[in-house]
Design a protein around this nucleic acid. Structure first.
Lengths: 337, 337
DNA sequence: CCCGTTTTTGCAACCGGTTGCAAAGTGGCG
DNA sequence: CGCCACTTTGCAACCGGTTGCAAAAACGGG
């Protein structure tokens, strides 16, 4: 059925090694044989079996892409960028959908069976120990959107979530809000924990503020909406920092359904700046997370780690910035730059 | 580095075949050796190399998942269902992002290099010839969300887009609209072409109607919005059948920004019933495409085709139905059921 | 034209598994 | 206990490639 090295070798009248060499970078073949081989290969429609060659070279060019969030539209953007970025470098994404699984054992075993060259864990909710399980199994791994650490145990690429919390807090203060709240994602998500820490950090330094917080059950529209509906039943805050754009959009929907106006009655600031945040019927003020840079950097780092597995784990953090749109009232008074 | 069959065999004091057999379904091994082997494997942390075994068995359990739409949120749902469905059957999705590529040659070559057992092309825009290229290369293929055909050249699973067009048309007529329009996706997308055909089909049978149509440049929010902004500049229709929910949502945003009300001034009906269509701030009346059933059926069909490559190509079509929400005015008069 | 150097080539072993086949082992039954 | 049928086991070849090594070929200089 499939045409192999041997078929090409016979047709070209050379040895199998000669054929193999014409298809491997930097191997020693004369122009004459190369032409003969290429001709034969063309005629037979031959292309080398990547899996067979991986046996001896030890490289499959497969990269495991592990994620657990298929309900947040930002992940479509994430998958788009990851798959394109990997393809551009000749790598192939092998997708793993964790759903609600939190034990890494299965994914580790599965990805080892397929001899992936490396793994990218794309999740802002999984703990560092998840990615660590790959490292312990000898699989190069990068945790994208993971928790920062000064001495990380695995490579992490993402943002400083505490800093984002502080940034959101300071923004709300600058806008003159005094009764504020953090509407986070699931309490177990590391990103939510860190954003809360940063938010509270700043708030506690400002005595005049009334501060509260609560958690949505997951990073999704429905969860954000449900939580905001609950909050609106009893003395809501003036402004909310939602732990994610998709929560913000859910919250927005609840606020508007309650007949309240944004930002007139209630202010909302999100985090991510996903595509939808810019849609004119949403127009969400948010903190932009530079996912393109995070993803490119993650790919670059995993590739580097494949070449040099003992690289000491590093944390690459990218700065975030406020994207001003229409869900927060303008500054009450001039703010120092 | 990695622990192999041989290591396990030595430690267990048996032959390599014995080890191989304990790990292959239905092979003949005594309980005694099986236990010895399992113990040794456990101690060494062995798990068989799926790629090496694929060399002899001819099965990799890899399924190529090819798509070209990473801007329509429905595809996040699609990826979620595909990856989970494949995983549940012990298969692994190898993702291919076509971006704007329309030539199948690259994907075919790449997926053959990785010896995928089968391929699922998930796209409502690519022509049947795209999937056909895989079949011609001897790779089992199913086209999900593809174009229906009475004698298809490859397996197709999806909906009858012409029928959906008719359904939308009839619905608008039943609601008493007389000036209507089809706002499609890209003109080259087969789904758009077919929906338009069905829509016109019914309209032409109703002399009282004023009908027009136009195309958005792609299936995305921005394209839908841009097209609707253009339409609003000159004598818009009373109601639009948008070729996709994400177009509808873009269109909705444009309509509302123009200070018009929905469904008061303009009615909109979409197609897909993606998660967001049900969000309370969108609340889109739409035609539900049963993507869960389509995806399960696609997986089942590709698996069956792997076992029996010469199966004659079939088209599996699933019925759609109207999901009534808030963007179309209620029936003007009683409608026969 | 000869000889030393460099390039190209094929052989054969190997990567990590599977599998047909024949030999060895096991069990049942008369 | 002996015979037969059935199960289990190991050997060796194979899957589709790669690669170290030594032989062969090509090249360059005198």
């Amino acid at each position: 059925m499939a045409v192999t090295l041997k078929d090409v070798a016979e047709r070209a009248g050379v040895s199998r090694s000669a054929v193999s060499r014409t298809f491997t970078e930097g191997a020693s073949v004369s122009d004459k044989t190369r032409r003969k081989v290429e001709k034969a290969a063309d005629e037979l429609g031959y292309s080398p079996n990547a899996l067979a060659s991986s046996l001896t070279t030890g490289r499959t060019k497969l990269i495991g892409l592990v994620s657990n969030n298929f309900h947040n539209p930002i992940f479509l953007e994430v998958f788009d960028l990851f798959t394109r970025g990997l393809q551009d470098r000749g790598l192939r994404p092998l997708l793993v959908n964790l759903s609600h699984e939190v034990d890494p054992a299965n994914s580790v075993r599965m990805l080892r069976q397929y001899s992936v060259d490396g793994v990218i864990v794309a999740s802002s909710t999984l703990p560092p120990s998840f990615a660590k399980a790959f490292r312990d199994a000898g699989v190069p791994v990068v945790h994208s959107f993971g928790r920062r650490a000064s001495m990380p145990e695995v490579h992490v690429v993402g943002i400083d979530n505490q800093e984002c919390g502080r940034m959101a807090a300071q923004t709300l203060i600058d806008r003159g809000y005094t009764r504020v709240s953090f509407l986070g994602g699931p309490e177990r998500a590391t990103s939510t924990q860190d954003r809360l820490i940063g938010f509270m950090d700043v708030m506690q330094g400002n005595p005049g503020m009334t501060v509260s917080h609560s958690f949505a059950s997951e990073y999704s529209f429905d969860a954000g909406r449900a939580e905001m509906i609950r909050l609106l039943t009893s003395d809501p805050a003036e402004a909310y920092f939602c732990g994610d754009d998709v929560l913000s959009i859910g919250a927005l929907s609840a606020v508007k359904d309650a007949g309240l106006s944004v930002p007139g009655d209630i202010g909302i600031i999100g985090l991510n700046d996903m595509e939808m945040a810019g849609w004119e019927n949403i127009n969400l003020t948010t903190i932009r997370q530079p996912i393109g840079e995070i993803i490119n950097s993650s790919i670059e780092l995993v590739v580097a780690t494949v070449d040099k597995p003992d690289r000491t784990p590093e944390a690459r953090l990218f700065p975030c910035r406020i994207v001003e749109r229409g869900t927060l009232r303008p500054p009450a008074y001039p703010v120092s730059p």
